[in-house]
Design a protein around this nucleic acid. Structure first.
Length: 499
RNA sequence: UCCGGUGUAGCGCAGUGGUAGCGCAGGUGACUGUUAAUCACUUGGUCGCAGGUUCGAAUCCUGCCACCGGAGCCA
């Protein structure tokens, strides 16, 4: 009786008989020999079935992708096998033979893949992302446990909004209006006054009608909240967390990152200290001639890149005409199309880039930083940049006004490099009841609704603060994903709730 | 909500007014070391839907629907 082994551990079993349970990921045949690629969730291995073993050979020539199988055989090292190890099959038991598995190892469109997300997650790339996601989540819990934080689960059904109700999903709660939470923060502040250092980590919901590569309607957010701290304390924590998460992914997922095609060089730069600038610094940067010459240099680099793309396009088109029909030519056609899109995109960007430089130079203090401004700022640094002290008017009511400059609040946004945008938003909280109420009125909110929250400032108020980290945005950055939808097993997007 | 794009076989695409095509997948056969194997043969279509223009529409026009990307908003 062979031992049941997972494929990831197969190289420890060379020369021995083992049993694998998994799914057929690919099949190639050559007359009197069949190569089955079998995956079991831990890895993929080539299983060799020879015609001299007809009981195994007959079914092996028939079964399709994703058939479930139990194989026994002996493990051997072979340089011809992908991964260097293969299984010489002695018995093959087909648990279910599959015909016409919808997802092949080839190009598919976004819509098709999203409608088959329940099957798409079996693909190597999706598995790699989900493994990294698991490591990030696990590391988050370890990070906070090691620092004496208590995990507190905040409610998902809430009576009102933290920042206005327009972007919330509404429910009928026994005849009363209720909403799906968009943040656990207010409840977390209550918990911080009980336990000192707390965090929550769960799904949050936004009904924003955003159809972009950065938005989900349901996403997971990590929110720590600390009593007896100030803005610097919040920033130190955010910096330590991001650095540790990136380091852990680099340490444990080299092969996954490689599979994803992620350039790890920018990630290796992610070590403390992160640059810390104020919003006013950021405005100066946006307006400064030095930044503009940098942006113009970048513009020239983009022009050069565009020219290079066009040369490559010509070369690909020439190769396409010279290639016989078949999947190789098909793949070329696909590359050509992607390149054309890239060229169109670059061309469009070049047109608007000059405008952006103009817009940046005329950026007025008091405006909120938009996506373009954030991208420009993030490009000026080689690691995440922390931008603090935004104008009070563009930020939430619970953020503490800076005693040194009442025009601004003690907040921080952490911008990821490489154009991935804001991954963390946090602040020191307003800890004075009267000023909090004043801020609510300023923003047209009814203090009576938040009476319990104001209580926290009436009974032993202390300086405190915290932040929120969007898990999927963080993963999109670390994994180098084009779209956030790949960072969560079953994405919820505007107009998409199946499967 | 606004702007732009796409909709042709199960999947990826070509087809700009005159007989509906290619590749992959599926099926049949050949091949004892394949790496998305290869080769031969082969099944498969209400050209998103509804109107209109025309002798004739996948192709032109109008409306609608679906999806994608971006803006606003945000993590």
């Amino acid at each position: 009786m062979a031992t049941l082994v997972r494929i990831a551990e197969l190289n420890q079993w060379i020369g021995q008989a083992v049993e694998l349970r998994g799914w057929v990921h690919g099949r190639r045949s050559g007359g009197k020999i069949v190569f089955l690629l079998v995956r079991d969730g831990s890895g993929v291995v080539q299983c060799v079935v020879e015609a001299s073993n007809p009981d195994a050979f007959e079914p092996a020539t028939q079964i399709g992708h994703e058939s479930s199988v139990i194989v026994e055989g002996s493990v051997r090292a072979d340089p011809r096998a992908p991964g260097g190890v293969e299984l010489a099959v002695s018995t093959l038991r087909v648990v279910q033979a599959v015909d016409n598995y919808p997802i092949a190892r080839k190009a598919h469109g976004v819509d098709f893949l999203m409608r088959h997300r329940h099957l798409w997650i079996r693909s190597p790339r999706q598995c790699a992302i989900l493994r990294i996601r698991d490591t990030v989540i696990r590391t988050i819990h370890e990070f906070f446990a090691a620092r004496g934080f208590v995990r507190v689960d905040t409610p998902i059904i809430v009576p009102g909004a933290a920042e206005g109700t327009t972007t919330l999903f509404q429910l009928d709660y026994f005849g009363e209006p209720a909403f799906l939470t968009q943040t656990g923060q207010l409840y977390l502040e209550a918990a911080a006054m009980a336990l000192g250092r707390v965090y929550c980590f769960g799904p949050t919901f936004r009904a924003e009608k955003s159809k972009t590569r950065r938005h989900l309607t349901e996403f997971w957010m990590l929110e720590p909240e600390i009593a007896w701290t100030d803005l610097d304390g919040v920033m130190d924590l955010a910096e330590a967390l991001v650095s540790e998460l990136v380091a852990r992914v680099l340490q444990q997922h080299r092969s996954d990152l490689e599979l994803l095609g992620r350039d790890v060089a920018p990630l290796e730069q992610v070590r403390p200290p992160f640059p810390r600038i104020t919003y006013s610094d950021a405005v100066e940067l946006l307006r400064s001639p030095a930044t503009h010459s940098r942006l113009r240099e970048e513009l020239e680099r983009h022009c050069a890149q565009l020219a290079a793309h066009q040369r490559r396009l010509a070369e690909l088109e020439a190769r396409w005409s010279a290639t016989p029909k078949g999947w190789v030519q098909d793949r070329l056609a696909q590359e050509i199309q992607e390149l054309r899109e890239e060229i169109a995109h670059l061309g469009q960007e070049l047109e608007t880039r000059a405008l952006h430089i103009e817009a940046a130079s005329s950026f007025e203090w008091g405006q909120d930083l938009g996506g373009d401004e954030e991208t420009i700022l993030a490009r000026l640094f080689d690691r995440p940049v922390m931008v603090t002290r935004y104008p009070r008017a563009v930020k939430a009511f619970y953020m503490k006004t800076d005693p040194a400059d009442p025009r601004v609040v003690l907040n921080v946004d952490v911008l990821a490099p490489e154009g991935y945008g804001e991954i963390i938003g946090g602040s020191q909280r307003e800890d004075d009841a009267d000023r909090l109420i004043e801020r609510m009125r300023e923003q047209g909110l009814d203090p009576a609704v938040y009476d319990w929250y104001i209580d926290l400032r009436r009974y032993g108020t202390v300086p405190h603060g915290g932040f929120g980290l969007g898990l999927e945005r963080f993963l999109a950055w670390v994994c180098g994903l084009r779209h956030i939808r790949e960072a969560i097993p079953f994405p919820r997007l505007m107009g998409r709730i199946y499967p």
